[in-house]
């Protein structure tokens, strides 16, 4: 009833994996990438994953941004991996695709990644967020760094445009800080 063809062309495809602990805004950062990329006409998917804990557990999400309809929304070998705490670095450093990008939060992680076959970017996310007004915006710092290094994912303008939609009403007063944090991450990358 529905027939189509897959050509196997060279469409833009970026698989992104965000990881940290619950409360760091991991799921939100992934959602903002989706909304911003959508705003620029791209296909997106977002799958969150978290521990069974009510709080304090691990949180991560898989995001795909592509020019074409997305087949698998899973990202077992990410092109870009953003890790915000030490357990996430230890667990997910090995899955980054060779030649991929690993962005790590140098404020909270005290031993640097060891891989030599990938691009590695250290960002002092919590410190930059603190300087912008709140450590809670560390996720925005990482997001700013990500779009600087991978501009095909989404532009800064597109990210800024979805801030109010993405952030829930009770946290929206933080958006002034979030804007500064995004810019801080962009500059740091």
């Amino acid at each position: 009833m529905s027939r189509s063809t897959v050509t196997g062309g060279d469409a833009m495809y970026v698989g992104i994996f965000f990881a940290g602990f619950g409360g760091q805004g991991i799921i939100l950062a992934g959602r903002m990438v989706c909304l911003a990329a959508m705003g620029e006409g791209k296909h997106v998917s977002h799958i969150p994953s978290y521990g069974a804990e009510m709080r304090g557990g691990t949180a991560n999400c898989s995001v795909v941004v592509s020019d074409e309809e997305i087949g698998s929304p899973l990202v077992p070998r990410p092109d870009v991996c953003v890790v915000m705490n030490t357990p996430s670095l230890l667990k997910f450093q090995p899955i980054v695709k060779p030649g991929g990008l690993l962005i790590w939060n140098e404020s909270l992680i005290h031993s640097a990644p060891e891989r030599t076959d990938i691009e590695i970017l250290a960002v002092r996310a919590n410190d930059i967020a603190e300087a912008a007004g709140s450590y809670r915006s560390a996720n925005m710092v990482m997001l700013g760094a990500l779009i600087k290094r991978r501009p095909s994912v989404a532009s800064m303008n597109a990210v800024l445009a979805v801030l109010n939609e993405a952030v829930s009403a009770r946290h929206r007063e933080l958006n002034q800080v979030n804007r500064k944090a995004l810019a801080g991450g962009y500059e740091a990358a």
Partner: peptide, 8 residues
């Protein structure tokens, strides 16, 4: 996964 997934 499909239930938790967000898409446009």
């Amino acid at each position: 996964f499909t239930g938790q997934m967000s898409e446009p």
